[in-house]
Design a protein around this nucleic acid. Structure first.
Lengths: 227, 227
DNA sequence: GATTGTCCGAATGTTGACAATAGAGGTCCG
DNA sequence: CGGACCTCTATTGTCAACATTCGGACAATC
């Protein structure tokens, strides 16, 4: 089992994954608002791919929770109600707690440096007045990094199953929350610090607080007028 | 189309789900041991279904973590190493903690009665010297019930993503653990009691202890000779 | 003798045609 | 005029054939 240091295996990607990526992108860009139907023939024609590939790509998005499909009634972009938001954040808090605890135990110096770089990039983006969407993307990449550091494959899969939904949720509902820009850097710096300390309990606690706090601020900023 | 007497009832629910169910059953029955390849043509011929349907069914099993598939290399039954067992139980503990906490807050009297009935059935089965596999099946149904009581759709999906793997793991590695039969009834009765009390913290704590305790006993009973 | 290039059988990835279904809108009857 | 029924169409579910890729066996080369 020889591994070459700086070389990751080039993984072949089928058309299904490619299609899933394109459709996901389109949803994030707002081309398909929540509730919009995703018709297989239409997508197949647009992507120059057969319906089978589109179909398989859609099941991947279904696994990510981005779309929902019913028998013989096709696929629609999932709508996110207030109850859905609550589900997403309670579940994410539980996952993040385990992720931060595990990461605190297993993070190497290189891992910590990588996460630190991400936070630095986040700070730079904020100071340069980058659009909030960019900050959110970096935020997500940071947490992806934490899950990767855990080396916990199934935990990563559980995160992947809600990741896109949380991303979409943040993109849609972050307009009113201006304090997000101020707090995002500081909070993530604290997370890295907790990981560096190796204190698993502290890291776990900070992880859940980070999620719950962000959720609470979001709700406060928007009022209770969630549909 | 050739008609086979007892094999022609796969219409209303979609052939893909039907195929997934059959294959899952076969895996649990030991027809496909861990690591065994699942060839699409072979399965399609056996189930009298096209390869497309088998293919879609296999992706469902992949979502459940029962099989793993690589590009152009097909599907195999997932093998469960010691590291996998650790992943499964740490993740399950995190999910169960949230599930017990939520269930403690939302369980109605009818819910509690239903769970109580399941425990009673478990006790009956144990006293009747039912095979351990039956006890395990009832054990799983109990926890399914807890997740259902939470009303937390995404939490239930996260559980579904590891449920089959845990089931398979228990089926394979429970031979040596005789104390399982003794403790299983008592522990689940305690869980119901905690839910009835409505004390969320206590329920959550008991939930994680239940998982971790069971895992520890399993490891002790088997020694460290896990492959 | 080890490495590299090439071929071959087998299995999967992809495709377009065909069948089944849900939902809409019209029609008939009370 | 309203409701049950029926047809019709758009859309998804299923299928069998075609294209691509993998892994190993064998031969050529240094």
């Amino acid at each position: 089992m020889d591994e070459v240091p700086g070389l990751r295996s080039a993984q072949r990607r089928g058309l299904a994954e490619e299609a899933a990526d394109r459709i996901r992108e389109a949803i994030f860009d707002g081309a398909f608002p929540p509730g919009a139907p995703l018709r297989e023939v239409e997508l197949a024609a647009a992507l120059r791919v057969s319906r089978g590939s589109v179909r398989e790509g859609l099941t991947r998005l279904d696994r990510e929770g981005l779309v929902e499909s019913e028998w013989h009634r096709g696929c629609r972009v999932r709508t996110l109600s207030a109850a859905d938001a609550d589900e997403l954040h309670t579940l994410r808090a539980a996952l993040d707690e385990l992720a931060m605890r595990t990461a605190a135990a297993r993070a190497t110096e290189a891992d910590l440096a990588g996460l630190g770089d991400l936070v630095a990039g986040l700070e730079r983006a904020r100071d340069l007045d980058a659009p909030t969407a960019d900050l959110i993307a970096l935020d997500m990449r940071f947490h992806d990094g934490v899950y990767r550091v855990t080396g916990h494959r199934r935990l990563g899969e559980a995160w992947a199953a809600i990741r896109s939904q949380i991303y979409l949720f943040l993109l849609i509902r972050t307009r009113g929350a201006e304090d997000y820009r101020d707090l995002v850097v500081e909070e993530h710096r604290d997370l890295v610090e907790a990981l560096r300390s190796g204190d698993q309990d502290r890291a776990a606690r900070l992880g859940t607080e980070h999620v719950h706090g962000g959720y609470r601020r979001l709700l406060d900023g928007l009022g209770a007028d969630v549909d």
